[in-house]
């Protein structure tokens, strides 16, 4: 646990020192929110969730890329793949919650009288929960940042454009936030909330398991090396 904690601690410190990146990570959800603020609150809140997901997953993707040159040294020093990726995942969840906080306050101030704030908070937490392992998974699968960024762009764009009632949207990782947003803003029945939460939790668990599996395979100790 100490190894995972150290990786998480130092990954957070590294991210907090990239002040320009932090500003942009905040600017992305903000721009997404403001662009449709004059329309129905549901539009701007749904776009805010997508912007938040995009920001957190991109941060996770680039954290994977910046760690790649350091990983060989850490593996030889006694770390295993799951120490590195679980630590990084904890850091990205922490960073994501820190980014989401001000936006929850913004929604509360802006639309607190017409939306259900509890479900908004739940949706934001699920967005962060899903986006962090999503970015790490793309980072561990796609070795170059540009390809990874484009892949993420495709995913978010498809999520944005897909018919939410269609089957394609439901298999995309961020569908849960849309369902919960509908419940929170349009005051529909609890089925939306239940479906959204279940989808978000299952997606988070599946993506986390996938990240750890892929990392374990990619960073495995080769069998020709034996310690006696």
């Amino acid at each position: 646990m100490r190894r995972i904690g150290t990786v998480a601690d130092l990954a957070i410190r590294e991210n907090l020192r990239r002040r320009g990146v932090l500003l942009l990570l905040l600017a992305l959800p903000l721009a997404s929110y403001l662009v449709r603020r004059d329309a129905h609150p549901g539009q701007s809140i749904r776009l805010l969730f997508l912007g938040l997901a995009w920001a957190v997953s991109t941060a996770a993707l680039f954290a994977t890329g910046s760690s790649r040159p350091v990983e060989p040294r850490l593996l030889v020093s006694g770390f295993r793949g799951y120490h590195l990726y679980l630590g990084r995942l904890l850091a990205m969840w922490g960073l994501g919650v820190a980014i989401a906080g001000p936006f929850f306050a913004l929604v509360a101030v802006d639309h607190g009288d017409v939306v259900r704030l509890g479900p908004i908070a739940a949706a934001m937490l699920l967005v962060v929960a899903v986006a962090a392992p999503l970015g790490l998974l793309i980072g561990v699968l796609v070795p170059r940042d540009l390809e990874g960024t484009l892949l993420l762009l495709i995913l978010v764009a498809v999520q944005m454009m897909a018919d939410p009632a269609g089957s394609l949207a439901k298999v995309l990782p961020l569908w849960s936030s849309r369902e919960i947003a509908t419940y929170a803003v349009d005051h529909v029945d609890g089925g939306y909330l239940t479906r959204g939460v279940v989808h978000g939790v299952v997606t988070t668990v599946a993506l986390t398991a996938l990240v750890l599996c892929v990392a374990a395979v990619r960073l495995r100790r080769r069998p020709h090396l034996r310690f006696v």
Partner: peptide, 24 residues
């Protein structure tokens, strides 16, 4: 890299008695 266990050889083995340190 093969000695450090970071890359797989086509054949052969590496035996280490103790702990490894690696400077890339």
């Amino acid at each position: 890299r093969i000695c450090a266990g970071l890359q797989k050889p086509d054949s052969g083995e590496v035996i280490v008695r103790g702990r490894l340190g690696y400077c890339p």
